[in-house]
């Protein structure tokens, strides 16, 4: 059984109230989700709080997961991203991460990561982004991985917000065109 199918089975178990299934799911997915949350929040204690909230949400909402509409990891990653961005916005005026990721190379994924059923898709998306202007691709990645607003990204890049928005939107539409 593939990693993704395992995750689907765990979610079904969780929906039926199986605590062991939640533990299995946690073991299979928590490092990935923690990685996603840490990219957005950077502050470890906050990221830990959010990770905990995510699994509590997954336990309560597993019955709502629809395998025909999203892959299980996409569903969980969306919950994790939403909760982390939620927390980031709740900080309000507190400074966001000062990491300059605009030019940072994204880490390669570990070869042994059996969890993700999207390795193929990931290569295609990465290839499509790589065909864009490197600066545009870097900004799209920053927006996605760090959960930053257009406003924050524009300030960091030192470019007008309108320019930045059009780079991102046109870039993603081109990316989708490459994927089709």
């Amino acid at each position: 059984m593939s990693g993704a199918l395992n995750v689907v089975a765990h979610l079904a178990g969780i929906a039926a109230g199986d605590r062991a299934a939640l533990k299995h799911l946690y073991d299979a997915t928590s490092a990935k989700l923690f990685g996603i949350i840490l990219r957005i929040l950077a502050e470890r204690s906050e990221a830990e709080d959010v990770l905990q909230e995510v699994y509590i949400t997954v336990w309560r909402k597993a019955a709502e997961f629809d395998a025909t509409r999203a892959s299980p990891i996409t569903w969980m990653a969306t919950i994790a991203r939403n909760r982390a961005i939620d927390r980031l916005r709740a900080r309000g005026s507190r400074p966001t991460t000062t990491l300059d990721l605009a030019t940072e190379v994204v880490e390669p994924s570990p070869a042994a990561d059996a969890l993700i059923d999207t390795a193929n898709d990931a290569r295609r998306v990465t290839a499509a982004l790589d065909r864009l202007d490197p600066r545009h691709a870097a900004i799209i990645r920053s927006a996605y991985y760090e959960g930053l607003t257009y406003e924050a990204l524009a300030a960091r890049e030192g470019i007008p917000i309108g320019t930045l928005k059009s780079w991102v939107r046109r870039g993603l539409i081109r990316m989708r065109g490459e994927l089709a």
């Binding site: 990685g35 990219r39 830990e48 892959s71 994924s109």
Partner: peptide, 21 residues
């Protein structure tokens, strides 16, 4: 969201502390 989601593949996993579970 689905189109963008493969990007999470590139996020390096980080083991959370055992206290979380």
């Amino acid at each position: 969201q689905a189109d963008l989601s493969p990007l999470i593949d590139a996020v390096a996993p980080v083991a959370p502390p055992p206290t979380i579970w």
